[in-house]
Design a protein around this nucleic acid. Structure first.
Lengths: 204, 204
DNA sequence: TACGGTATAGTCCATATGGACTAATCGGAA
DNA sequence: TTCCGATTAGTCCATATGGACTATACCGTA
């Protein structure tokens, strides 16, 4: 039922999400993403990006809305996101938000989680917290066992780090869920629409 | 000078590192890595793994040492790591340990850092700490600015998480560097050789 | 006016990845 | 004995990725 969204890559999701703000041509999306440092979230290279756009179009998740030409520069095709594309983003976030493998996917899902209603996000993040707690215990037990068995510390540093980071993530997650559930701040695209880009427009 | 090691993938490094323990055939490496949960560190799929071995062999980093046959099952080629392969691991860890982009690569580098002498690791991790501190400040400043500009909290959650995790990593890293520098525990493969696998051997 | 550098807007290709598929053998139950 | 499923040991291919390359237009300077 929620199957067709399975093939989306993180960059694909970010592309669709960007187009929800307004219609754009590919190079403009590239510039925007880089200006907003979204390339810290996901590696964005030219080749991958243009391929992604082509794939999304073939999948019917975005569509051309016009071709304009500025001066004598190459034509630029402007794209818009389709209804299927909007649904795909929502479904993808729904699927990735509770998962604890795929750290990269989670970051993107979290960044786009405002596309879902507050209660859904609280539920999905609680599910994630449960999984994370289990994973944390697994690591701590594993380390305990290794220490007991006399595995030297130099072979455990990586696992110790992982356990420490899992702990930190749990702390952060608990705080977020609590604030979300208590409605400590507004949520949802209707509540506070993404403010329109104030930077100088690209063409003009 | 340290150039030829540049093309190594994380899985390639782990493969070479495994072969430093003893000669093995590919399927045995696969089993061992999975038994040791190295697939939590790096995704390990069949296709990728066998391709990786082939690539390493073509690059001269590992070499066949014999083909045996057990019963009537398919032949298994046993591999060993070459001197070039050993150097490549050391160079790769040297290059990746101080870097703060490439989180996956860092985890592998950390897991294999015992291949380097203690002082080198202290230096490289200190370099990493400096970079990490800068990144952390960047995030905190960015968040400060966003808050000042009135960017709604729902659009900042991902960045807040990143900042929190950076903080946790700094804390962990400081502790590790201090203990390493103070020689709080043994270090280096000569100090405490990796204990020989106690599990039941595969063939026999 | 010639000229070099940067911004625009991509294309192209070698390589890496994931996962479905193959094929033989072994062990145990009916 | 025969059949079923798991284990062993990979192969193969479609797709994704990174990064080098192209080509034009604009802008400031000498």
């Amino acid at each position: 039922m929620k199957d067709p969204a399975c093939k989306l890559t993180p960059l694909g999701v970010m592309t669709l999400a960007l187009l929800r703000e307004r219609d754009m041509h590919p190079y403009e999306m590239l510039r925007l993403m880089r200006q907003r440092h979204h390339d810290k979230l996901v590696p964005i290279t030219n080749g991958t990006f243009y391929h992604t756009v082509a794939r999304l179009q073939k999948a019917g998740l975005l569509a051309e809305v016009g071709i304009d030409r500025d001066g004598n520069r190459p034509e630029r095709t402007t794209y818009t996101v389709t209804d299927a594309g909007t649904d795909a983003v929502v479904d993808w976030v729904h699927a990735e938000l509770p998962r604890i493998d795929h750290p990269l996917e989670f970051r993107v899902a979290l960044a786009e989680s405002h596309n879902l209603p507050r209660e859904a996000v609280v539920d999905l993040l609680s599910e994630r917290r449960a999984a994370l707690t289990g994973e944390h215990r697994l690591y701590r037990d594993g380390l305990e066992g290794a220490r007991a068995k006399g595995v030297p510390e130099q072979y455990r540093v990586q696992t110790e780090r992982q356990a420490a980071l899992l702990g930190a993530e749990l702390t952060w997650l608990d705080a977020l869920i609590e604030r979300l559930a208590a409605s400590a701040f507004p949520w949802g695209p209707d509540a506070e629409p993404h403010h329109v880009t104030t930077e100088r427009r690209l063409s003009e």
